[in-house]
Amino acid sequence: MLKLTDLTKHFHTKHGIVRAVDGVSLTVPNGKILGLVGESGCGKSTLSRCVMQLLPVSSGSIKLNDEELTILSAKEVRRHRLDFQMVFQDPYASLNPRMTIFATLAEAVRQRHGKISKTEATQRVATLLETVGIAAKYMQKYPHEFSGGQRQRIAIARAIAPEPKLIIADEPVSALDVSIQSQILNLLRQLQRDLDLGMIFISHDLGVVHYLADNIAVMYHGKLVETGSADDVFYRPTNDYTKQLLNAVPKIARHSDV
């Protein structure tokens, strides 16, 4: 379980203090998906970078399974980082084009399991690929030989390879076509069920977030303005900003049920 308490991250700039994350408290239980929404610049990415220990926090606490992460030394942070993995928006940019899929995934597996034999690595990589729905026989191929949807599957396999406790998915389906998007969303749901992962799913597409997430947190100017179950936030928003955000989602006019 991930627990953030009163997390703040301030940047000191020429023009004064930017309060990118300003007193955020939230919890992500294992096996649950938290949808984080908000417009660009609201602090979503800074928040996820703080959780990933890529940025030191200004104050507040981040606890993963009751272990405080903000006080760890740099060395310990590196060890702990395996527990969090990220999936990024652009699968074209997030895989190393010069490494085969096997090399990419085996590297990630070895992060957790140290030196393992090639046979064992092959076996683990095969299992990983199977989990995300790609045939193991393709493991010697390079990223450019796969389609966008397949690449995002590989990026997801890469993220779950070190057996993390938490995955932060930053707009993982925004760059994909609707048909591929639905494959990836189905995959994420399946992983959440099977691996009991906690997940922070960042997206600006409220339809997608409502469909996937158990809980939704709405962020505005570095603060959480509304949190609640996905249905509550989506159907019964109380905050004005949330209402405004929901109002902006293009609606598909249904004239009859199909």
């Binding site: 609707v178 048909s179 998007q181 639905s182 494959q183 969303l185 189905n186 749901r189 339809g207 997608v208 409502h210 469909y211 996937l212 996905a230 249905d231 989602v249 609606k251 598909i252 249904r254 199909v258």
Partner: peptide, 21 residues
């Protein structure tokens, strides 16, 4: 067209599998 419409999360209730092409 039907497959495209069936792939959109907004047209599904939560927990329902999305159609994939």
């Amino acid at each position: 067209t039907r497959a495209l419409e069936a792939s959109i999360p907004a047209m599904h209730s939560k927990g329902e599998d999305l159609h994939t092409i």
